[in-house]
Nucleic acid binder design. Structure first.
Lengths: 285, 285
DNA sequence: CATATCTTGGTTGATTTCTTGCATTTTGTG
DNA sequence: CACAAAATGCAAGAAATCAACCAAGATATG
């Protein structure tokens, strides 16, 4: 058995299993442990595999989008709380249109395993449902933005023009009393098409988004049916959105991860109090 | 932070990353190592995750699609060799249309980082290029097939009708002198649209595919410009495809059991797995 | 308020795994 | 055939990980 053949076999084993233990590989390849280790080093240098303590991982197929890597823990907690509340407002059997963005991604994660029809322009969201047999998945096509992984452009918009969904879950870069704002010109057009395709429009946005404007106006507030936000939203804003005829859904913030990072001993449960996590069963069964 | 909430977060982290190290989880959850270990024990008992030395693996519906899981490793060797040859035949700056399938996926892996425009209907392929700034990516939309992760249906076909690419890389379930065969009816229509969109049609198929028929005929042989295959392809087939006006590109298999078989001095090689290359038999069958 | 139960966090010793160095074998080359 | 280079296997010291134990705090119950 030659070196190249062995390495070829090795990467095949790793690829098929996704993960393989060292002893396992030694046995199947019939060579010494040292040789396997050295081979794994080589493969890791090539980027084909990634070593861990006790084994190897196949490194291929998992996308690393910049937007999802470094998210603030505090915002992440809010996003997650919002996602729980939003997922609760979606019933089984619905046809849901999911926008791109980190918050909608959190919503999508909670919807995995539910009996739904999902339409999305987001590649990360699509990946969540791709292997799920219980969820029908329709992906909008078009040019894929490298940073966010969403499909944009006239093709996506055109396809949206021919679809109708019961609920659209939309994200936003900023919200003022003028309406929703977004940072991407092409995405704004796509989101407008999403609005037109929807029977119910649900916007998910944490409280830090309020009062912020961004590049383009996507829509006015009265086009929105429901707005899901964390409980950090100031009272005047609550007034504003409710006067625009928007149903406001407030998600209780469980605990701030910031305090936990700064003082890990002090995260006692009295701050949490009662947070019964209303959707535990519905979302993550 | 409640126990259940923490465990929920934990399984979410593991599910999304596929693998997570212990230290990593300790840091992100803000709890002690012992607690994480105990949680992982619990999750392992539930079957949600599988522990390894130094971390955890998610054991469930990953972005791991059924088609990519259990295939003969020997075929993968051929696929990779074919992919190398096919990728070499694609020049920088081209617009490449990539079909779904395991072989085209291998081609796609080798194209990552190249300066290209890529069009595809395959979710796994799209994931490879999604975070690549150097490659423009256009994704075809439509209904996503759960088993294979490719976009199908009239929307994909319609979008294809308006695109033109320099090269289409097509896969096949079977090849006879009648032409290319595929196992999915809807996919066949999509692939026919791909053929029409292409300036150059390149088919990637290992030698085991020859002589096999499948559900539907996709196209005749003369619609193909180039065919990339491993060197296990029998001579009669080479004649057939070349007479159809197809340029035949043969990828040499890196595996050479011939040298070992001719060497009488090999001492312990019989203990190691020495299997005759199945592909060469398949080509004759 | 007192008690019992559960959860959490830290520590210790044992186990597993990793790296490094060296001798031997195999491969490639003139 | 001889020589150089690379690959392979083995072993010992170093590093990391694991499992079990115990104390402190939180929660529930009467």
């Amino acid at each position: 058995m030659q070196t190249h053949e062995r390495r070829s076999k090795l990467i095949d084993l790793i690829r098929i299993r996704g993960f393989a233990g060292l002893e396992e590989l030694v046995k199947e390849l019939g060579v010494s442990e040292s040789t396997v280790r050295r081979d794994l080093d080589t493969l890791e240098e090539q980027g084909s595999a990634k070593r861990t303590h006790g084994g190897v991982l196949y490194s291929g197929g998992m996308p690393r989008l910049g937007e999802f890597d470094e998210r603030q823990p505090s915002h992440w907690a809010a996003k997650r709380a919002i996602a729980v509340r939003a997922a609760a407002a979606i019933a089984d059997g619905e046809t849901v249109l999911l926008d791109g963005g980190t918050t909608t991604y959190e919503v999508a994660r909670l919807l995995v395993g539910r009996s739904l029809q999902v339409v999305t322009n987001s590649l990360p969201v699509a990946n969540l449902f791709a292997s799920e047999a219980r969820t029908d998945l329709v992906l909008l096509g078009g040019y894929v933005s490298p940073r966010t992984g969403v499909c944009l452009g006239p093709y996506a918009n055109e396809l949206l023009g021919r679809l109708h969904v019961t609920t659209t879950v939309l994200s936003a870069a900023g919200i003022t009393q003028d309406g929703l704002f977004n940072a991407h010109l092409l995405l704004a057009e796509t989101e407008q098409a999403m609005l037109r395709a929807a029977g119910r429009v649900m916007v998910v946005a944490d409280s830090s988004k309020f009062g912020r404007k961004s590049l383009t106006l996507v829509s006015s507030l009265d086009a929105i049916d429901q707005l899901v936000c964390d409980d950090g939203l100031a009272a005047p804003w609550r007034e504003t959105v409710m006067q625009a005829g928007v149903e406001l859904l407030i998600a209780p913030l469980p605990v701030t991860d910031v305090s936990a990072a700064g003082d890990p001993r002090k995260q006692s449960a009295h701050l949490i109090s009662q947070q019964p996590n209303p959707l535990q069963k519905a979302g993550l069964a």
